[in-house]
Amino acid sequence: MKKLLISLALIMLCAAPSFAGNGELFLYIWSEYIPDEVVENFTKETGITVHVSNYDSNEAMFAKIKLTGEGYDLIVPSSDYVALMRRQKLLVPLDKTKLPNFGNLSPKLVNQSFDPDNTYSVPYMWGSTSIAVNTGTLGSSAVESISDLWKPEMTGRLLLPNEPREAFSLALKLLGYSLNETDPAHLEEAYQKLKILMPMVRVFDSDSPKQALLSGEVSVGVVWNGEAFIANQENPEIQYIYPPEGFSLWLDSLCIPKGAKNIKEAHAFLNYILRPDVAATISTDMGYSTPNAKALELIPIDIRSNPIVYPTDAEVQRGEFQDDLGETMKLYDAYWIKLKTGK
C-alpha cells in the first residue's frame, strides 16, 4: 500500500507540470495551413511555446488521434470529421467563457448541423466546391447551372474531383436532395445520373485541378474555390459560378481532442486566432476565406469583393456543409467503384 501511494505521488509529481500549464501547446494542423509569423507572434505575446505537427489528410489525423489518444492539444478537422469525432466522443467541449472573441465570427458559418452550437469547434477557414468555367472557350452563358454539365457538348471537356462525395453532391443537388443524403433510393437515383455523366468526364483530379483548366485540357471543372481563385488570377476568362441547385461548402475548424493536456493554452490560442487582425493575416497569407466577420474589414477590397473568395449571403444560403455519413459511406464507395470500373 505504501508503495502504491508513493508511486501515485511520483506520477502526480511528474504530471504536475502539465497540469500547471506552464506554457506549452501541441498543434496538429494541415501542412502549410498557418503562417509561421502568426505562431511566433502568439509565443511572443503569451510566452507559450507552440509545437506544430502536420498531417495531409483527415484520415491520417483521425487514425493518429484514435490510436494514440493523446499528445495533441489542437487539431483542425474538416466538417464531416468534426461530426464523426464528435459522435465518437473524441472531442473536448469548448469553454466559451475563455473565448470572448468568438462573437467575431460570421453568423452564417456558425451553428451548423455537423456541430450544433459549436460545442466542440471554432471555424478556422472555409470555402466552397463549385463549378469553374472557361468562358473563353465556352462562352459566358454555356454553363450556369449543374444541369448544364450534362449537356452533350461538354463531353471530353469536364473535370470532376476524384472523390465520391463531391461527385455525388453534384447529382444529389441536381435532384434537389441534400448532399448528406442517406436514403438508398435517392442515392440510386443520383448514381444513375452520374452514370450518364461519367463517360463525359475527361479528368478526375483533386490535387491540382487548376492545371487542367489553365492548359486548356478541360473547359469546365468542379473545383474548390482556392484553385478557382488562382486560375482566375492567371486567366480571368476562367470564372466561378454558384449554381442555383446548390453546391458544397467546406469548413475546417479548430477542435480540442480528448487527451489534450494543455487545455488552458489551447483556449488562449483559439481566442488569439479569433482576433480580427490575426484572422485577416491568416486569410491574406494563405489565400483562403476567413469566417471572421470583423477580420473581413481588414482584408483588401479587391479580395473582399471577389465572389470566388467571399460569396454573397444569398449564395452561401444555397450551400451545404458536409456531414459525417456513418455506415452509408459504404454505399457511396460501392457506387464509386461501379462508376469507376464502368460496371
Partner: peptide, 10 residues
C-alpha cells in the same frame, strides 16, 4: 493512371 490518365478508371 491518376496523374496522366485523369483517374477515370479505377
Amino acid at each position: 493512371p491518376d496523374i496522366l490518365g485523369g483517374a477515370r478508371t479505377m
